[in-house]
Amino acid sequence: MTDDRKRTAVSVRDLHKNFESGYSETRLFNGLSFDINEGDFVAITGSSGTGKTTLMNLIAGLDKPTKGTIRVLGKELSLLNDRELTALRAESIGILFQTFGLLTDLNVKENIKVTQMITGKNNSDRERYSDELLEFFGLNNKADFNPSSLSVGEAKKVGIARALSTGPQVLLLDEPTGNLDPQSVNVLLPILRGLRHIYGKTIIMTTNTPRAAKIANREIHIEKPKIIPIM
């Protein structure tokens, strides 16, 4: 064991998540286990309905597994109460939602700043960091725009900028290249590479796009769920 050995950022053990719908039960993950080290860029792949978004929600502590344990930055999520989970998300986890999750009553810059108020930074620091993020993503000229007036690609960039705005250690990107035209994918992929190299964050990304999966240094494939009829 050496000193420079990376610490585990996310650890998943024997994960099961079951959903009941009508006369059947969908069993996701089937005992999935993996470790993700700090600074890793991991692509979670699998066809639609395999539970990629559910896995992101579980890692973010937004949902609870039926069975199994998840540890994020050394904290076992099942042992944390609601307030501690909120604090963990606020301080250590950045999330990009599949549907961007932008607030349409706030402009682009305010969307980035809204999460910063929980970081304890003062207003000038928040202002400066928001400007830096807008510049990094090439959105300076769209700072006052309403998110509904942005293209899908731009909205994804704002979503990623917001996810980065609190300086999280773990970044969860749910389908960052989903619903994007090839041109926008060409713009976004170098940004994702940049996130890995410039910010050095632990990045977990779900994707169905092989090109996007290739920029990750590791791939975790989720198998199809089991559907069990309920008697």
Binding site: T86, R89, G101, L102, L103, V114
Partner: peptide, 13 residues
């Protein structure tokens, strides 16, 4: 939707 997003990004419900 707005409330869900805010809770998800770390604002206490």
């Amino acid at each position: 939707r707005d409330i869900a997003i805010l809770i998800a990004v770390g604002i206490w419900k």
